[in-house]
Design a protein around this nucleic acid. Structure first.
Lengths: 193, 193
DNA sequence: CTACGCGAGGGCAGGCACTGTCATGCGGGG
DNA sequence: CCCCGCATGACAGTGCCTGCCCTCGCGTAG
């Protein structure tokens, strides 16, 4: 037994999610979160850079997971196939904890600051995917655009999953998005130039 | 002559950009901006929702421009061709004021909060493009993904333009991005499912 | 000409997010 | 037994942002 209860960080994450759900993000002062977690405000900001970040603790793990999946794809796989494998891996994580993910997303959707934070996390994920593709020898432009395309697919597919029946698997929705993107890209787009 | 100097909003925008360039965004209190513009802090927040928004005054205009371009595309044009026309129109605006755009972007790139705001503006632009595509009769999924793909192209092409020689036209860079995206989408991507 | 409302901005008080700094007490290593 | 590191507490301070009320000049109705 230490001087303090263990897992301060986890307690803060849980208290924050609960309160954000109960009262909304804006109506929840940091002091309330730390009170519920049995800690002080100062400690909150030692664990999380700001009031938003507490909702995105798992994003770095997701990044690693996706980057590893890209690296693990067969050497013969096309770039788009490699990032599809990464989204496949990510989908597994989401599907495992559908309820938690849905709750968290409802909080994010309800607040502009949180949506901003979500977008920069997705941009960071895009960067990680692009890096992983470059490691595979993909050229700069191809890596960048393939990664951004994957994020587009993730955004749209994930949204349809969240807004629909969360018992349905996410993976087929992502596959459908890849298909639609391929079809749309194939037609036209020679206009700019 | 009114009671106050005219164009308070414009003076705030200019003073803010100047100061953000001179000292950096974080090191510039709102009070400094209003001082330079000859106004009070309270007035700043009547014109702009927050300290970041003052840098993104033109984004709603850009949205309208792009949405109009999509609507104005020939009825026979494919969705991707229509959004390419929209980026074409946007590129024209950027190229006209390359210096200002470059200065503004250097400020944004230097600060995470501003990058977040930029991303949500791009997401909003994506939504506007998707709406315009739906107006053309494009189905939900196709509209969404085509719009997101266009934003991906804009992000990558714009970045290359900013980081390179800004005298070079932006449009060919965007066209190249569309090509690369089409090629990448055509290969593989059948993995998720 | 007067009265009145409206619009743009000023002034002030206050809440809350976040930071710097120092204090505190448990655990482990010498 | 001492000391040092580490996680947390305590507290003051800054800056962003808001709510509320006041001021003044202008246009307009009467």
């Amino acid at each position: 037994m230490g001087r303090w209860e263990p897992n301060a960080r986890g307690r803060l994450e849980q208290a924050a999610l609960e309160l954000y759900v109960e009262r909304g993000y804006e109506q929840t002062p940091v002091a309330e979160i730390t009170k519920r977690a049995g800690l002080t405000e100062r400690t909150f900001f030692r664990h999380f850079a700001d009031k938003r970040e507490v909702l995105f603790a798992g994003s770095s793990m997701l990044e690693e997971l996706c980057a590893d999946a890209v690296a693990a794809a067969p050497a013969t796989a096309a770039p788009m196939t490699a990032v599809a494998a990464a989204l496949d891996a990510a989908a597994g994580v989401f599907e495992e904890r559908g309820d938690l993910v849905g709750l968290r997303q409802s909080v994010i959707d309800a607040n502009a600051e949180l949506r901003e934070r979500e977008l920069i996390k997705l941009a960071s994920l895009s960067g990680a995917l692009a890096d992983a593709l470059r490691e595979r020898g993909v050229d700069e432009l191809g890596a960048w655009l393939t990664a951004e395309a994957a994020i587009a697919v993730l955004k749209v597919g994930f949204r349809r999953w969240i807004d629909g029946d969360r018992e349905r698997p996410l993976r087929p929705l992502l596959a459908e998005c890849f298909d639609v993107l391929r079809t749309a890209s194939a037609q036209g787009a020679v206009g700019a130039g």
